[in-house]
Simulated assay, not measured.
Amino acid sequence: MSKTPNTAVRPKNTGQKVIFDNPVLESLTRTHIAVPISIFVLFSIGLIVYAFTYSQLPSYLIGILFISGLLIFSLVEYIVHRYVFHMDTDTDLKEKIQYNFHGVHHEYPKDKGRLAMPPIVSVILAISLLYVFHLVIGEYTFAFLPGFVMGYASYLFVHFAVHAYQPPKNFFKVLWVNHGIHHYKDHNKAFGVSTPLWDFIFGTLPK
């Protein structure tokens, strides 16, 4: 029978989890949110400047590809959160992987140091995405990937904000409410962080 440890985890709004006894390894699991956001924003800007300056892509197509990248990232965000971070943990290994990847965040949702991947992982991810996308879609990468990466930077910002600050008194409040429901009431709802779009489409939007 599958089991999902998040259902048994009681969120703690203070403290933090030590994953590695080795202090060097432990430090690599933590980061200030501004570091990865800065990495991805600068990476996105660099790519989009390259697209306008050196590629043969027309301006209108660069805009379309950029917006497409934003949209596709939001779908990837939803899928990864729902099916990877909340995978069925039917083995001890899966349970350990799930906890270290995401369960620890559900147990300590206010731990600001673990709201994003560490810088070294962010750099490796950015370079890997550039290589893979260029291999698949060639020159279109320089317009599509900036949108995709900016989508990720936006996700990081929203995710940090909903955990670190009180909700605003405007329509953005829905992001705080949905993520609060996901953490404190029903972890099988509200998988979208930066947008509720895919929760609405796939029927996981909280009532």
Results as ranks from 00 to 15, higher is better:
H81V: 04
I39V: 13
P109I: 11
L125H: 03
L42P: 03
S74W: 00
I97H: 02
Q166M: 07
Y54R: 14
Q56H: 15
Q166D: 11
Y165G: 00
G46W: 05
I37N: 01
V193F: 02
F43N: 06
V162H: 02
Y165H: 09
I45G: 05
H102A: 14
N100L: 09
F202H: 09
S74C: 06
S128E: 08
F157K: 04
I124E: 01
P119T: 09
P58N: 11
G147H: 03
F66E: 03
I67A: 15
H179A: 03
F40M: 10
H163R: 08
P5W: 13
I33Q: 10
S38V: 12
P146I: 08
F157Y: 15
L42I: 15
L115S: 03
E95G: 12
M150A: 09
N13C: 08
A164W: 07
K17H: 14
P109N: 13
A34D: 12
H163T: 04
V104T: 13
F133I: 04
M87V: 15
F142W: 15
V121Y: 05
G63D: 07
T89K: 07
S55P: 14
Y54V: 07
V84I: 15
P119M: 11
K94N: 14
T141V: 10
A153D: 05
I201N: 11
K17Y: 15
F20R: 12
F73S: 05
P109F: 05
S38C: 09
P168D: 08
W198P: 00
V149P: 00
V76E: 00
Y54D: 06
I124Y: 06
T4W: 03
D88L: 10
S154M: 03
N188L: 14
L65A: 06
A51V: 09
Y165M: 05
K112L: 13
P146K: 11
K169T: 05
Q56W: 06
L70W: 01
N6L: 11
G180P: 00
I97C: 01
A51I: 03
Y83C: 09
Q56E: 13
N170K: 01
D90V: 02
T14F: 10
Y184W: 12
L57V: 12
E26I: 12
R114V: 10
P146H: 08
T29P: 01
K173W: 05
D92L: 11
A153V: 04
P196R: 03
S194H: 03
M1L: 11
A153W: 04
L75N: 02
W176E: 02
G103L: 08
Q56T: 15
L156M: 15
